[in-house]
């Protein structure tokens, strides 16, 4: 069975459609309710996590370390929930990190600017630009790019009931059936997010890929600390459940890119 990853330019509208889709299909619905558990587990105010997802712009550079780690914690918790089948997910920025999973149906809801968002065309364009910038900074993904989605539903051309009907119909499409490859891809994403959120406690520039227990960590480090950092990452990542092998690529120098 597929999972739905729904995002919208207006949170309440996206939530309504996603919730109704889940109810119609008998799927589990996950949204910002999971933030409570993350907040309690990591001793972060729940309100801060909510604000983090609502904010139109990334924070200033000095606050980015915490911001990235808190986003990573949301990502980790969301991916854990998505490992179960029959899920509709909304409101957790999952469309920015559930990538390369063929049974994940990625949906973008675009509400009409005057009817739903109550903003002028100029405001809407500015908002879109901010959304774009936010998603690129947070996850290297342009959330305003329609090519990133399996379906884009414009409420100017349809209504919410029809949008739900469309999504329910998509669930029966065999192309989106879970398969061994897609389930393994999702497991890899979940493991890499667990490792990343752990390493973000100590490091700011961290990219993690996972493949069946093998972890590749990319980071930027000064030449002086290179060996120490590599060893530290190997130990920390190697202790995480599900990790069988750790490879670290540490780039040094001003022009080093991850």
């Amino acid at each position: 069975m597929p999972i739905f990853v729904v995002s919208a330019d207006a949170y309440p509208i996206g939530r309504r459609i996603a919730e109704k889709t889940a109810a119609a299909l008998g799927y589990r619905y996950i949204d910002r309710e999971i933030l409570e558990g993350i907040a309690a587990k990591h001793d972060i105010p729940e309100e801060r996590l909510n604000r983090l997802l609502d904010a139109a712009t990334p924070p200033a550079q000095i606050f980015k370390k915490n911001w990235r780690r808190q986003l990573a914690l949301i990502q980790e918790a969301t991916l854990d929930k998505l490992l179960a089948d029959h899920v509709v997910c909304h409101g957790l920025a999952a469309h920015l990190y559930v990538l390369g999973v063929s049974h994940a149906i990625r949906v973008r809801i675009i509400s009409t600017t005057d009817k739903a968002a109550g903003a002028s065309q100029t405001d809407a364009k500015q908002l879109e630009q901010l959304c774009r910038q936010w998603s690129l900074t947070a996850f290297d993904m342009d959330q305003t790019d329609p090519a990133q989605y399996d379906t884009v539903i414009r409420l100017a051309e349809t209504d919410e009931t029809e949008a739900v009907r469309t999504l329910v119909a998509m669930s029966a499409d065999s192309r989106f059936r879970a398969n061994t490859f897609s389930v393994n891809c999702l497991k890899d994403l979940e493991l890499s997010s667990r490792v990343r959120s752990q390493l973000l406690k100590d490091y700011t520039n961290i990219k993690v890929e996972a493949h069946k227990g093998t972890i590749i960590v990319r980071t930027r480090v000064s030449r002086r600390n290179r060996n120490k950092v590599i060893e530290d990452i190997k130990i920390k990542a190697g202790n995480i459940e599900g990790v069988s092998f750790v490879e670290v690529h540490a780039a040094s120098g001003l022009l080093a890119r991850l």
């Binding site: 390369g100 063929s102 499409d173 065999s174 989106f176 059936r177 398969n179 061994t180 490859f181 897609s182």
Partner: peptide, 27 residues
């Protein structure tokens, strides 16, 4: 050469499952 597009095409044509190489015989 597994990819989202290829997996979806295979399932659309009626494949029972789609597996990326390498895999363990047990899988």
């Amino acid at each position: 050469y597994a990819s989202v597009d290829l997996a979806r095409r295979a399932l659309d044509k009626g494949a029972f499952d789609f597996i990326a190489k390498p895999f363990k015989p047990g899988d």
